[in-house]
Design a protein around this nucleic acid. Structure first.
Lengths: 228, 228
DNA sequence: CAGAAATTTGACCAGTTGGAAAAAATGTTA
DNA sequence: TAACATTTTTTCCAACTGGTCAAATTTCTG
């Protein structure tokens, strides 16, 4: 039975021609397989980008045949769209939490920590995002110029208030946010480089703690020693 | 015997069968067309990555037919390899210039400026590099763990000396370098996002000057106001 | 300008790509 | 367990992919 058949059950004579598709609930198998596919696709898309990834590759990573995969996601783009949407949610969460209530120092510090944790715990999503940006954000530009810009503008106001109150140095709040994004995401997106440069000893799991300590210090105090 | 010696006209009867191919100098057309191809390829590779880019695409961007392009670069990989090599040279130049001679403040400041200028003047190269990193640096990992690591280790020593002398705050020099890379390259790699968030008024050419001012301030002083 | 060398074109190829269709197999539920 | 829906496999396709090759054309050199 296809979704299109749903109309036949309706009351006889009741004119529900313009009835909505009314998606039926997913079966257990659908839920499971979709998750497997999305996970495999994230592996591939985050490394090769949209064009560079192939359905065959994803299907193999998901342990199923290509037509079987296409049964769950009829188009390659569908998979990508879903992943992008999921990723944006994850990506934005830390910024949404950024609050005017707390004091600047703990607030900024914990924002940095959360973003760094994202790089540690969701590196594939970070790379998917980076890939999308490198391509000029063809599938997200509307969202960036809409929701994201609005959210950033809002948080910028908080930062400006703190600056007005002399709680933090007066500086460009937009570029401040960019620099937090850049420094934290670097550990996911440029992981290969970070590890290569740090070498085996310092490039292990501890690198995130080192980075957190360093970034906290950088953002709060900078490099110049405070005059006594 | 040096390789150059083999080129000279040997004695008439001298058996030089195992002579190397001895590449003949490039013609004018070869130089011109290769440049056009490399430029077009940089456009495509920097956006779509190696797998996502096609020879047809590059050929069209270069304004020539695919077989014609293949006459100059018999393999897709050749083009990519050349671009990567060129890019690494550009990418490393600012770090090479980083010197122990000057004082920390102007030295660090001008390193940041140079890296930011790279993002402004060579954004495609920066994106090519980013693409390569996102893929796990398959074609550059040796170079990263070799030349780059060595160079970084060397510059780290300079930073440590300055820290020993109390000229700059004691902090993790590796992560300091990472954060300079991250913040400056962000303006090339995430250009789409930067422009979207800044909006039309602030996202114009001036954004690089704003970024330079902000970053200088961040790296030197951080966000906390100095105690009087 | 003739001849040689360099360049460009068109026709072609085998493998890959995203995707369609239908049959076969498996699951679900009354 | 029979009837039905869901899932999987098999087969297939047209467009695209990286690349070859010989013929035609253009450029260079004496």
């Amino acid at each position: 039975m296809t979704t299109a058949d749903k109309a036949k059950k309706a009351a006889p004579g009741a004119a529900d021609k313009p009835a909505k598709p009314m998606p039926r609930p997913l079966t257990r198998i659908q839920r499971e397989k979709q998750d497997i596919i999305l996970d495999a696709a994230l592996d591939i898309f985050s490394v090769h980008g949209f064009r560079g990834a192939t359905i065959d590759q994803i299907a193999e990573a998901a342990g199923m045949s290509k037509p079987n995969l296409l049964y769950y996601f009829p188009r390659k783009e569908e998979i990508h769209k879903r992943l992008i949407a999921e990723m944006l949610d994850i990506w934005l969460a830390p910024l949404r939490e950024f609050s005017a209530d707390g004091d600047p120092v703990p607030e900024i510090r914990s924002y940095i920590r959360r973003k760094l944790e994202m790089s540690r715990d969701f590196p594939r999503q970070s790379r998917l995002f980076a890939n999308e940006m490198l391509q000029g954000a063809p599938r997200t530009i509307d969202m960036l110029a809409g929701d994201l810009k609005q959210l950033v503008d809002e948080k910028v106001k908080i930062l400006e208030t703190w600056m007005d109150q002399g709680k933090i140095t007066r500086t460009d709040p937009y570029h401040l946010i960019f620099s937090i994004w850049a420094t934290t995401q670097h550990y996911a997106d440029f992981d290969a480089q970070v590890r290569a440069v740090l070498g085996p000893e310092r490039g292990g799991d501890g690198r995130f703690e080192d980075a957190a300590r360093f970034l906290e210090n950088l953002f709060l105090h900078g490099l110049l020693p405070k005059k006594a």
